[in-house]
Design a protein around this nucleic acid. Structure first.
Lengths: 207, 207
DNA sequence: CCGTCCGGTAAACATATGTATAGAACATCG
DNA sequence: CGATGTTCTATACATATGTTTACCGGACGG
């Protein structure tokens, strides 16, 4: 993507800023006013270039018909109803540390209700039997306990895994949904395992 | 928040749908055209009411200056970055008919760009081998062709199904991902089958 | 039967807004 | 220097688009 001049970036930034505030794009004359220009032509030239370079899309002739293209996550579109995507957790890293956040993804707001939900990328094939594949994103609602047999994110030592959760009198069992893996059994009350939350949804992009 | 009539809801839904596709709002005349009305007044009345009731905000006199407010009262889904959920398609019903739309769901904005995407609820267990279960929602990007072996939504006569798509010299084969089902074979060029679009994502809520 | 919404037609009207033409000042670069 | 590109002024022009006035028919409750 072609580099922008300072001035071009200023125009793009303003368009973003405007959309973030209004949720619809500015008109050329509004942009003109913002920069204190005396002609609409200058604005049009800039927009033409931003379109040409691929930073904007436009519906020709239509009013306020601009669309932001690309991914500048700084000011892009206002992120509403989004939930952070936490990467595969590195050993020792606290689960929700800023540095782990890869992206922000939307959820149906029926699910948003709980604060603190997050997506986690699944590594490994231990849950394929539950139709959760490697690379899938699981939406996690943080909670300290889950019901018998529910799919949960559990922290074992420094690692987080997705497993079916079972509690017996004296122990906790974490079952994979893949015959190639054996259940993980932990003595109850042991400090090493902690339920992080419950998996409430699965999201997968194909290709 | 005041209840909406069916008609008012249709208008609100279309505005949401349009914004989801374009990322800027429709003009009154575009709405008029969509509903096949002969006057702009009807549209204006509806928008006036939606504004009055608090479903929309508006910048008076400005073009395409509509803003979605709050949440959908019916479904609780956020009003931005949404895509329609088309129900399990009933025989004979055109796939994207207004009456079929059950809900509007968010998608990661990287995927929103293509206009016309929609969710479809999967019925049956023919794709379990691809980790697509009954009740899952598949995000469909409409396109007339798909690559060899890609998962597609195909219309056969009056029904829509999700299958793996293969094209041979003289025929089209639709493969299930479940040994209990046999491939569907169609002579090429036969009018009965048509690729509706490609499955680009899968979404499942647990419980 | 009457009043009141709801949903619409028809025809203008006013203006918001994109686009075009002609050119100028100023920088950068070969 | 001459060519080229960026940024901008000035002035129109064309049309996309919101707004308004006048009126109609049906559904519905009192």
């Amino acid at each position: 993507m072609k580099e922008l001049t300072d001035r071009q970036r200023q125009f793009l930034d303003f368009i973003r800023y405007y959309i973030a505030g209004h949720s619809f794009p500015p008109s050329i004359r509004e942009i003109q006013a913002h920069f204190g220009l005396r002609s609409t032509k200058g604005v049009k030239d800039h927009i033409d270039r931003l379109v040409e370079y691929g930073y904007l899309r436009r519906m020709d002739g239509a009013a306020r018909a601009l669309e932001l293209v690309g991914e500048d996550p700084l000011t892009g579109t206002p992120m509403k109803d989004v939930v952070p995507l936490v990467g595969t957790v590195a050993a020792g890293m606290p689960l929700l540390a800023e540095e782990n956040i890869e992206d922000y993804l939307p959820v149906p707001s029926g699910l948003t209700r709980t604060e603190g939900m997050f997506y986690l990328r699944v590594s490994g094939d231990s849950m394929t039997g539950a139709a959760i594949l490697e690379g899938d994103l699981v939406l996690v609602r943080p909670q300290p306990f889950v019901e018998q047999g529910e799919i949960a994110v559990v922290r074992i030592g420094d690692e987080a895994t997705v497993k079916r959760f079972f509690r017996h009198e004296d122990r906790v069992e974490l079952h994979s949904e893949n015959p190639r893996y054996r259940p993980i059994v932990c003595r109850d009350g042991s400090e090493e395992t902690r339920v992080v939350g419950k998996v409430v949804a699965v999201y997968r992009e194909l290709e």
